[in-house]
């Protein structure tokens, strides 16, 4: 190792100490730390089962979600054949909640995912190149910040008209600015680190530096932020549907179900609470998982 003499036993000791710690990669370490976090694991399991439930709803659901019998309107929870009761049109609640998960999860995840792609790109460009690019992109996003998220989503949806695609579109537009802003601030701080200068000093061009050195360090924090937005997005989507701006009846969607069951709250309060409970559980799990992810990804030197 160097010019000073060293006794052989000491050398053996030092080498043993070096080989003892076997490197795991970064993501493997994050994964290991996440697995140790009981809350995150529980949330991930709940979310996984919700997704599986929604995906396999056609196989799992005991009834057709759109088919109801007027005779069995608003049966109570625990009724034989209808474990979770029926809604105001006599449709099986369990089946509707399962099918409703498809739309609700999709409307929670898809806008955030698209906004994540677009917002991160915008933020990267604004943060890395700075100057004019930054002013153009960040001032434009600032305009969106002038309106509360709910109002913005309603306004855009209202202008575009009701419907699934328009709801996704309006929600995506709502989430691009905050994601772009986070991506911009993370990029700005990464850009100023010495390893970016070292890469420039190696002769790399901006594109290569972004691809190899900046992107990997920006995606993590932005991803954590985006996961925390999923719950907001679900609630907003439910709100849009509640107002009649999202999906239309008779499609099952938790927010819409909450709306239509609103009148039945005095007859069967527990049934009308069910869709809300699902939204609550899902968004809570996304939030807690995002928290756990933040902790797991924060690996110190």
């Amino acid at each position: 190792m160097n010019s000073t003499t060293q006794n052989p036993s000491a050398q053996a000791f030092a080498i043993a100490a070096e080989t003892a710690a076997i490197s795991r990669g970064y993501w493997a370490t994050v994964w290991m730390r996440l697995k140790r976090d009981k809350v995150s694991v529980a949330c991930a399991l709940v979310l996984l089962s919700l997704v599986l439930m929604a995906v396999f709803a056609p196989l799992l659901a005991p009834y057709d979600p759109a088919q109801g019998t007027m005779l069995k309107r608003l049966s109570a929870i625990g009724t034989t054949g209808h474990w979770l009761g029926t809604d105001e049109l006599g449709r099986d609640m369990l089946s509707r909640l399962m099918y409703g998960g498809q739309m609700s999860l999709l409307m929670g995840l898809l806008p955030v995912f698209i906004a994540f792609l677009i917002g991160t790109s915008l933020g990267l460009v604004a943060g890395f190149f700075g100057g004019w690019w930054n002013t153009l992109i960040m001032r434009t996003t600032d305009v969106f910040f002038a309106f509360p998220a709910v109002l913005l989503a309603i306004a855009i949806s209202g202008a575009l008209g009701a419907g699934f695609v328009n709801a996704i579109l309006s929600l995506t537009l709502v989430f691009i600015p905050p994601i772009a802003r986070v991506a911009e601030s993370v990029t700005t701080s990464v850009r100023n680190l010495d390893f970016v200068d070292a890469a420039r000093a190696s002769g790399a061009n901006s594109f290569t530096i972004i691809r190899v050195h900046v992107l990997g360090n920006v995606l993590g924090p932005v991803f954590i932020y985006a996961t925390s937005l999923v719950s907001v997005c679900m609630i907003l989507a439910a709100g849009l549907s509640f107002l009649g701006l999202g999906v239309k009846p008779p499609v099952a969607e938790w927010g819409l179900m909450l709306n239509t069951l609103r009148q039945s709250i005095y007859v069967q309060p527990w049934i009308s609470v069910l869709p809300g409970l699902m939204i609550f559980i899902t968004s809570l799990c996304f939030n807690l998982l995002s928290d756990g992810l933040r902790g797991a990804m924060d690996i110190k030197r």
Partner: peptide, 11 residues
Amino acid sequence: QALPAIPGAPP
């Protein structure tokens, strides 16, 4: 002359 460095690192 090389500096008389201490090899290795603290435990």
